[in-house]
């Protein structure tokens, strides 16, 4: 700067010194701000590209967190459905055993009445299972808000054909409920109607072989749904792991973009401090002497 200027005055030297001190102090304050805030980007102008990345990563992070919550919720739904279906299968096996006992000609009417009584109990237990709920919503009722999937008389209350889905990834949705009408049947073919018929036939001493076939068929049907639930449960487990891994990658990306490298920051700060101190020292030495000090 002063190379092209022939003449240097004390005022110019003082001005230059002041300017350099100010610049040094500014750099130091920026470094200090970053180091104490532990953030590399304090305002978008610090790193526009990094800011863009940071915004994108943050929105991905929020989405991935919601997907993780959705997956957890889906696992809850399927766990409830799975246990309800398993219990239902057991109950149906028991009902079939009872029906077979009743079908043998040696059973007395008294014994058949007792069997009918137990079948009634099984029907009620099945109704309870069919109305299993998770978080206040019936897992077999689809998107209905009726409260229960099957009413007391065994009528399906759910919204036919509807399904409860959870978004478990950016482009992936999965059904987390089970169609109650398909599992337990509806109308005259429903498991409740079949068991009612069986109990009535037992009490009346009629032939129950039709009911036995119906129960077996229903059991096969329910088992089919059980395996579907298992498949979907596995799918959710895999999605949960994938989402957690994605969250980890996103968080690593955020740290890389937003956080400061503390070791580097401290070295920078230290060297800046040295620069500032030497600037102060040099300024104090240069500005205090003039010709006035050497003549008397």
């Amino acid at each position: 700067m002063s190379a092209v200027i022939g003449r240097v005055t004390s005022g110019m030297t003082a001005r230059a010194a002041q300017h350099h001190l100010q610049a040094n102090l500014q750099r130091m304050s920026t470094l200090m701000e970053r180091a104490s805030g532990q953030r590399a980007i304090l305002r978008p102008s610090d790193d526009p590209v990094g800011t863009g990345d940071s915004l994108r990563l943050r929105s991905e992070q929020r989405a991935a967190e919601q997907h993780a919550r959705n997956t957890q919720d889906g696992l809850g739904w399927l766990t409830v459905a799975d246990s309800a279906i398993r219990t239902s299968v057991d109950l149906l096996v028991r009902a079939r055993d009872l029906a077979l006992q009743g079908a043998t000609g040696t059973a007395s009417q008294q014994a058949r009445d007792a069997l009918a009584e137990e079948i009634d109990g099984i029907r009620d237990a099945l109704l309870t299972e069919a109305n299993a709920s998770y978080n206040g919503r019936s897992v077999f009722a689809g998107t209905s808000d009726a409260g229960v999937a099957f009413s007391e008389d065994g009528t399906f209350q759910g919204v036919p054909g509807s399904s409860v889905v959870r978004r478990i990834g950016p482009d992936e949705q999965l059904r987390v409920d089970v169609d109650g009408a398909a599992v337990f049947g509806s109308g005259a073919g429903s498991v409740f109607a079949v068991l009612e018929t069986l109990a009535a036939d037992l009490r009346a001493g009629a032939d129950v072989s039709g009911s036995i076939t119906a129960i077996s068929e229903r059991r096969e049907e329910v088992l089919g749904h059980l395996s579907q639930v298992g498949v979907r449960y596995n799918r959710l487990e895999a999605a949960k792991v994938a989402t957690e891994q994605r969250l980890g990658r996103i968080e690593a990306g955020i740290v890389e973009v937003e956080d400061v490298d503390l070791a580097r920051m401290i070295i920078d700060l230290k060297s800046q401090e040295v620069a500032y101190q030497s600037a102060l020292g040099v300024t104090a030495r240069v500005l205090q002497n003039s010709l006035m000090d050497f003549i008397r």
């Binding site: 002063s2 003449r7 001005r15 230059a16």
Partner: peptide, 24 residues
């Protein structure tokens, strides 16, 4: 801007040493 001001000061500014020399 600073260079311009310096250029201006280098002709218009007062230097204590110069003035002392003149005084002497």
């Amino acid at each position: 801007a600073r260079t311009a001001v310096d250029l201006q000061l280098s002709t218009a500014g007062v230097d204590l040493d110069e003035e002392t020399m003149n005084l002497l």
